[in-house]
Write a protein that binds this DNA or RNA. Structure first.
Length: 852
RNA sequence: GCGCUCGUGCUGAAAUUGGUAAACAGACUGGACUUAAAAUCCAGCGGAACAUUGUUCCUUGUCGGUUCAAGUCCGACCGAGCGCACCA
């Protein structure tokens, strides 16, 4: 057995968790102007926490504890995104009640989170599946409805055949369900929509103001909203018996190159051909490929000629009209003008149908266009000789003058379909009366509760049953049917950060003064996978609330940190079956199972059950303690990058903490609370020049660690803390006072990362009646003038022609002449060997470059 | 095709405003302690050359540019990851 004591992480962590609980030190108070709202994306209660949670919540906790120590009122709450399909699926498979299943998971995961030692105000806990929460959500839905932000319409929807529900566009990834992975089918259903498209412009423009968001997330949202500046052009038909055809284009200046019109298969004009068998064949094929991404990618351009012609708005020419299979019905007007000379798709189509076309832009390789730097318009009437941007401006004016076109901006963002044909979600508070009226449930009758004991044996939506859906309108007494769809769970998470500000309010979703005080969330931490889903919906909700008259800000999250995944090595056997890494035996770069079968080592991938490379946080906390797990999570990689899990890494982290604990115990350190410049204290003892450097280092580390944490650079903050420990191990016996001071600073700086150990070390060092959690952060300071004595020495790099030659140690703040004198003293030969010096660049305290 | 992010040792990585490249770790190697192992402690750890333990040179994907000075700024190219995409 080892001769040093293993540090008692279990008893120690339990002790401090109980102490924090007892003193209720993390309760949020609404006093004074300085606040910080720290939030991590709340978890879905799936059963147990995983390493991704550990990383997410540790990052948030470090930030929360840091700002609390820095004198801010911190709101750091936790809740549960507790509606959703896994509960229902578990219920169907194991014949459980979804609510029981969910509550059990919440209580397990709450215990696990508490063991991590998070500084959370648990009094503010919310759970989206509780009627106290969804009651307010129903009220908000009704308000949105009354303010024109909710509507119902028949629409072609994304149908997930595995989860048996509709998905929003954002939830379909590469044609597959984001959760089930099933091929998504198209289906017409009557659906509820939230009018997110009303705010397309704002949602896009305001991204520029979100300075605290990663560029990547903003780009993803920009792409998703998809703005196109262009022009809507109206073509008259040669045969007066038909309506004009509107097309949308972002390149109106190429109008003189228009060789045909292309319509989508379901364009209104298609009705004319409903009896035409050839057209029907085309239409069926086009419809099919539009529904499956794989078909779409492979499909060749094809079409159907209508034998109709449109008139070119400027040329007296006829333009043939085709139905084509590559124009989307839901974008723009579902019609385009084809310009084969300058569009690859139109070119492919024109070649196939032998449509004649001409170029309207100078060839890029042509000499005259090279001279001017940009191509000019040709064959384009009044536009000839203009650049693309000038021609565009001019042609839009001409369209608007002869009333054949209008400038227009389109957005790709569509309204948010929120109907889900599932039981375990928030009921939509709408009833359909027998007289045909659709009305909202009166406020006094809210919440519309889910039935307690649903019957999952019958197929389809359990709400779609007589006992629950049949009701009466209390105003008219007429009988009515309840809406049986429930809301998408992304609605639940679109306002939970508002509810945390005032979680117990029974009368309203939140009190505006509470929200005004706490919002926006100052630091929001979560996975990149919500870049366009949850984060866009939440931004929409704020604007929707504002539209309904709530005096809330526009942006919910001021700073966003998207943390990377936790990865772990993977192995497969010869049958491509995943093997747990801890069952792998390594021999000279080859890998085997216990019974000798050779394995292939795969890439390090995100921990997942299917790849069998997960590590259970509970067992890690059991073995090494929460502090070790937390410290390891923050130590190696920057938070936004992926983190590689390694058994050696976690072990080495534990060794470091163990070493600190045993060392401080053995030297019987005394915890002291000097502020940043404790010079008077130090005067009491002899304090010679040998202590100057370590003292300076301690001060620098306070400053730099503080800056690092503020900027999310936790890995470098940890490196500096290790550096400080290394310095203090060396300093140890030279000066007791400096040593105590250094370790006391260390204990306070390491507090956000390993709070239990920090508290315990201060306690062992004699801190009584107060805890580190209640103590202010050591104040970073600048320009330390050491004990009023001579300024400190510094290293000066001597370069010749920009290349380092050597380093000398000199007094700080020398001017150039003083420096040269000092240089000659230390290296008498150096300047002689240089011969001719053309130039000397001298930067105080940093560098001297001799150019020869 | 369009956009974003990023290329640094064996590995994770570090390097305020351009100013000592590789901090802090992991793995590895050697040594001390031990009957032995573990634990712990000490030392080494980008490459090359000359030389016998110090000196010189090279090194941040490639090529070029700006500068006294470039991992950092600019341009082109190569490569990786992610997002969007028949969006007119």
């Amino acid at each position: 057995m080892s001769n040093i004591e293993k540090y008692p992480h279990k008893t120690l962590e339990k002790k401090w968790q109980e102490e924090w609980n007892r003193s209720n030190v993390f309760k949020s108070k609404k006093i004074g102007p300085k606040k910080k709202y720290i939030l991590e994306m709340f978890p879905y209660p799936s059963g147990n926490i995983h390493m991704g949670h550990v990383r997410n919540y540790t990052i948030g906790d470090v930030i929360a504890r840091f700002y609390r120590s820095n004198g801010f009122n911190v709101l750091h709450p936790m809740g549960w995104d507790s509606f959703g399909m896994p509960a229902e699926n578990a219920a169907i498979i194991n014949n459980l009640n979804p609510n029981d299943w969910t509550q059990k998971n919440i209580s397990t995961m709450k215990k696990q989170l508490k063991r991590m030692g998070l500084a959370i105000d648990w009094d503010r806990e919310v759970s989206t599946c509780s009627k106290e929460y969804y009651k307010h959500q129903q009220k908000l839905f009704i308000e949105f409805y009354k303010n024109g932000l909710v509507y119902k319409k028949d629409s072609l929807v994304n149908w997930d055949p595995v989860d048996k529900t509709v998905l929003a566009n954002e939830q379909v990834v590469d044609g597959k369900g984001w959760r089930s992975g099933a091929e998504i089918e198209s289906k017409v259903l009557s659906q509820w929509f939230l009018k997110i498209s009303k705010f397309s412009k704002e949602l896009l423009d305001d991204l520029d103001k979100l300075e605290g968001w990663p560029e990547k997330v903003k780009t993803m949202q920009r792409n998703w909203i998809g703005k196109s500046d262009g022009c809507e052009i109206e073509f008259k038909l040669e045969d007066k018996g038909f309506e004009n055809i509107k097309v949308f284009t972002t390149r109106p200046e190429t109008i003189y190159g228009a060789a045909f019109l292309g319509l989508s298969f379901d364009h209104p004009l298609s009705e004319v051909f409903s009896d035409d068998a050839v057209f029907q064949k085309f239409r069926n094929d086009a419809e099919k490929i539009s529904q499956k991404k794989e078909l779409l990618d492979k499909a060749k351009k094809t079409g159907f000629f209508t034998n109709l012609f449109a008139l070119h708005p400027f040329l007296k020419e006829k333009v043939p009209i085709y139905f084509v299979n590559y124009v989307l019905s839901e974008y723009g007007t579902g019609a385009i003008f084809g310009c084969p000379a300058h569009d690859e798709r139109d070119k492919e189509f024109a070649l196939k149908f032998k449509i004649k076309y001409k170029s309207v832009l100078q060839d890029q390789s042509n000499e005259s266009s090279l001279n001017s730097g940009q191509p000019q318009l040709i064959n384009s009437g009044s536009l000839n000789g203009l650049s693309v941007s000038d021609a565009r401006k001019k042609i839009i004016r001409e369209f608007e003058n002869n009333k054949s076109g209008i400038k227009k901006t389109l957005y790709r963002l569509k309204d948010w379909g929120v109907s889900r044909q599932r039981y375990w979600g928030c009921p939509i508070p709408i009833i359909y009366r027998e007289d045909g009226e659709v009305i909202t449930v009166p406020e006094s009758e809210l919440p519309v509760l889910l039935p307690d004991a649903p019957d999952f044996k019958a197929s389809g939506n359990p709400l779609n049953q007589k006992e629950w859906k049949e009701t009466k309108c209390t105003i008219t007494g007429l009988s009515a049917i309840r809406e049986t769809d429930t809301l998408d769970t992304f609605v639940d998470s679109s306002w939970y950060f508002l509810r945390f500000c005032d979680p117990k309010n029974d009368k309203q979703a939140f009190d505006i003064s509470e929200v005004k005080y706490w919002l926006p969330v100052d630091h929001y931490i979560g996975g990149i996978e919500h870049a366009i889903l949850h984060l866009l919906y939440s931004r929409f909700f704020m604007r929707a609330l504002k539209h309904c008259g709530y005096n809330v800000g526009k942006e919910p999250f001021k700073n966003l940190l998207t943390q990377g995944m936790v990865n772990h090595e993977t192995y497969k056997d010869s049958n491509n079956i995943w093997i747990e890494p801890d069952k792998v035996i390594k021999k000279n770069n080859s890998y085997f199972t216990a019974d000798g079968k050779e394995l292939k080592k795969g890439r390090s991938e995100k921990m997942s059950k299917s790849k069998k490379n997960t590590i259970d946080p509970e067992s890690i906390i059991e073995l090494y303690g929460a502090d070790t797990a937390r410290f390891f999570m923050m130590a190696d990689s920057p938070p936004e990058r992926d983190l590689e899990w390694s058994d050696e890494g976690i072990k080495a982290t534990w060794k470091f903490l163990n070493k600190i604990y045993n060392h401080l115990k053995s030297i019987k350190h005394k915890f002291v609370i000097y502020d940043s410049i404790p010079e008077e204290k130090f005067k009491e003892e002899e304090f010679d020049a040998s202590n100057q450097k370590p003292y300076q280092d301690i001060i620098d580390i306070v400053t730099n660690t503080t800056v690092d944490i503020k900027n999310y650079r936790f890995n470098t903050a940890v490196a500096k803390l290790r550096e400080l420990a290394n310095i203090l191990f060396k300093v140890e016996n030279k000066n007791k006072l400096l040593n105590n001071y250094g370790w006391s600073i260390f204990i306070r700086l390491i507090y956000p990362f390993v709070p239990h150990l920090s508290e315990e070390l201060a306690f062992l060092g004699g801190l009584k009646g107060e805890t580190i959690s209640e103590m202010p952060w050591p104040e970073p300071s600048k320009n330390i003038n050491f004990m009023g004595k001579a300024p400190v020495k510094c290293n000066l790099v001597i370069q010749v022609n920009g290349k380092k030659k050597f380093v000398i140690s000199v007094d700080t703040n020398l001017n150039q002449d003083e420096f040269l004198k000092e240089l000659d003293k230390q290296k008498p030969d150096f300047r002689i060997t240089l011969k001719v010096v053309k130039k000397l660049v001298y930067i105080k305290n940093k560098i001297a470059n001799f150019v020869v």
